[in-house]
Simulated assay, not measured.
Amino acid sequence: MKDTHVTVNLPGREIILIGTAHVSRESIEEVAGVIREEKPDQVCVELDAGRHDSMTQKDSWEKLDVAKVFREGKGFLLMANLVLSSFQRRMGAELGVKPGEEMKIAIDTATELGIPYTFCDRQIQTTLSRAWARCGFWSKSKLLASLVSSAFTTEKLSETEIENLKKRSELDGMMSELADYLPTVKETLIDERDQYLAAKIWAGGTSKQVAVVGAGHLMGIKTHLEQIAAGKENADVSELDKIPPPSLFSKIAGWIIPAIIVAIIVLGFFRAGAGVSLSMLLHWVLWNGSLAALGTLIALGHPLSILVSFVGAPIATINPFIGVGLFSGITEATMRKPRVTDAEAISDDVSSLKGIYRNRITKALLVFFLSSVGGMVGNFIAIPSLAGLLGK
C-alpha cells in the first residue's frame, strides 16, 4: 500500500481512499490511473458544488455582487477564500499545475468511463463560518495574521517538497503545529471535515468506491468509516452544516469598547465639564476616523471611500452590529464598479500585490479590510488617550 493509498475493507464494501496534494502533478496521474484500474461503482471527490462551479464555469465570478457580500457580512469570508485560493495557485504556478486539478481529472475520468461521481465536501462558506464563529478574539487575531502573511508570502515550494506533503511523517508534524497554534481552527478545518467526508462517502452506498481527498484527511476518514461501519458512530452529520450561535461573551464583547469610550467621555463631563468632554470626543473621532481613513488610503481607495471611512468609523464603533468596512467597502464597490474583466482576471490577480490593487473586486475587499483594521487600532489607541485627558 502506498502512502497515498488506503483501502478500507468493510462488510460488503470496498472504499479506496486516494490522498492527494492539491497542486501535485503525481496526484493527477495517480488519480486517473487508480480510477481506470479499479473501475469503481462510484467516485467521490473532496469538493462542494460551489467550488466545482468556480473551477469549471468561467462566468462564476461575473455573478458576484460585491456590495451584497458586504451587506450580508461575508466580507471576511470572501477574503479568506480568496487568500487560500491565491496561496494554492501560487504554489501550483511554480509547478505548472492548477489547484484542484486532480479533482477535475477524477470527474473527467469518471465521466469518460461512465462512472457516477458525487461531491462529498462541506460548503467552503460553512467551513469558514464555523471556524470563525468558534474562534475567540485572540484566535481570530492569529487567524487573520496567518491569512495576511500567506497572502504576501514569497515562499516557494519545490515539486519534491509538494510530494513530501503527502507523507504521514510530514502531515503529522503539520497537524501538530496547527493544533498547537490554532486548535479550534484545526478541529473545524481538519477533524470535522474528516467526519463529514467519511459520512458523505459512506452515504454513497455502492460496493466499490474511489474517494479523492486531501492527504491530510486520509487516516481520519479511514477511522471514521470504520467507526460508522461498526455502528459506533452516527453517519448523520447535519449538525456540522450549522453555524454555531455566538456565545454570550461574543455578544457582549462587541459592546465593551464603545461602552468604555462612552463611559470615559461621560465621566470627563462630570469631573471636568463640557469642554474636556468635548475635547475627549474630538480626540476619539480623530483617532478612530483618521486611522480608518488611513487604512482606506493605503488600499488606494476612492476619495469618497476615504471620507466615508473617516465619518463612518465612529458610527460603526457605537453600533457593533455594523462595521466601518461595510460603509467603505460598499462605497468603493459603488464608485468603482467591478468590471467583467475584473471577474475574469481575479484568479490571476489575487496571486500578486499589483494584481490585488488593480482588480476592482479585490480592491474593494482591501478597502473593507484595511479600513476595519484602521478603525479597530484607532479605538485601542483612543482609550488610553482619553484616559490621559481625564487625568489632567
Rank of each mutant, 00 (worst) to 15 (best):
H302E: 13
Q227Y: 10
S176T: 12
G375F: 14
G19V: 05
A292R: 04
L300P: 00
W61M: 08
L78Y: 14
D108Y: 10
A345P: 00
A343N: 01
W202A: 01
H22A: 05
E226M: 06
R336C: 10
M91Q: 15
E170Q: 06
E112Y: 12
L77Q: 08
I28G: 01
R336I: 11
W138I: 14
K2G: 08
N81E: 09
L182V: 05
S86Q: 00
A230Y: 07
F321G: 13
G391W: 04
I115N: 02
L84A: 11
Y357H: 11
E161H: 04
I162Y: 04
L157Y: 04
G205M: 07
D3W: 03
A199H: 10
L366Y: 03
L240Y: 08
F368H: 13
T362W: 00
P244Y: 09
L17D: 02
S238F: 02
V311N: 03
Q57S: 04
G323T: 14
A293Y: 05
L17I: 13
G100D: 12
E38S: 03
P246F: 06
S247A: 03
E163G: 04
K208D: 14
R336H: 14
K74V: 11
L84I: 14
L365Y: 01
G289K: 08
G92S: 11
L128W: 07
S277Q: 12
K98L: 13
L281F: 15
H22C: 07
L386M: 06
W287P: 00
S169A: 13
P99H: 09
A313K: 03
L389E: 07
C44Q: 10
D41N: 14
I16S: 09
G325S: 10
V97T: 06
E163C: 08
L326V: 14
A151E: 03
T160L: 11
F321Q: 15
L370A: 06
F369C: 01
A211L: 05
V34G: 04
R13G: 00
Y117A: 02
V210F: 02
F249G: 02
H52V: 08
L77I: 15
S290Q: 10
M335T: 09
A316P: 06
I124V: 15
M219G: 05
G75Q: 12
K58L: 12
F269M: 11
I28H: 04
L77W: 04
I228Y: 10
D348A: 10
V377W: 03
T362I: 07
R193W: 03
F321K: 11
Y357F: 15
P303K: 05
L386A: 04
H217K: 02
